[in-house]
Design a protein around this nucleic acid. Sequence first.
DNA 1: AATTTTAGTCAGTTAAACTGACCAAAATTA
DNA 2: TAATTTTGGTCAGTTTAACTGACTAAAATT
Lengths: 139, 139
Amino acid sequence: MSEPNTGVYLRQLYDSLVTNLHKELALQGYEEITPSHGLVFQYMEENGSRITSLASLAGMTKQSMSALVYQLENLGYLLRTADPDDGRAVLFVLTAKGEQLKSLAKKINRSFEQRWEETLGTEQYTLLRGLLLKLVESA
Amino acid sequence: MSEPNTGVYLRQLYDSLVTNLHKELALQGYEEITPSHGLVFQYMEENGSRITSLASLAGMTKQSMSALVYQLENLGYLLRTADPDDGRAVLFVLTAKGEQLKSLAKKINRSFEQRWEETLGTEQYTLLRGLLLKLVESA
DNA sequence: AATTTTAGTCAGTTAAACTGACCAAAATTA
DNA sequence: TAATTTTGGTCAGTTTAACTGACTAAAATT
């Protein structure tokens, strides 16, 4: 193979992060949590989110997002409440269990990224993040 | 949301690359090619690859890889030949159509990355690639 | 008041992975 | 060299996570 494209690097790094996260979560008893559940935690708003808004943030259909939140609700990570302002809508909020998982996941990812930071040095790692952010924002 | 982790950036950028690639390929008539087919093209060796080796490089089971190469064979991108040195094995090689697709995909990705390079400037983009490579290699 | 849009569900489909059981050829070991 | 184990691959069936289409009811618009 000649020069691998940047995409190959991006994918490998992202995969290693996700694999690590779910391996660690499984070790700590959260075996039922899958990568796609992560999207829900990532996009949940403080005072509750609607399926439609989660779906649009995560870039998937509301039917698919509906399935994800239904699973998380049944597993006790989310609570379904009625939206006081809109009789059609449903608001989901994180339960205590949900908050716990979210902060554990954050911790696991932070410590994994710590290894990246150590590999490059803090300065270079900050630089890397800045460059990535610039690309994300330019899209 | 507070500071997004680096993984979020990596995923967004990778997704945009893949989405662009398959949108462009579809426009040029390769609608039948899916992201997972890309793994085959990425890991194919010059003088033919075995299912087992492709599977291991791509990090999936041989059954799954078997399905992918079967599809690509039926679509005319791969040719199945017997391995002269091993009666159990099968060698797949790219057909002319397969080579064409591979080089088109490369071109599309290169020009997409070109936009990233323009956003950051060549120097910073080279730096970014170097940092990513360092992380990939440290794994 | 009638119509259209929006939030969400139900039902069914598809894509892409998985496991388990198996066969035949090759490699290893006794 | 014969018996056993490993390896390359297939077949059959399952699972996960997405999808589309058709629908209901509430809200917003005309």
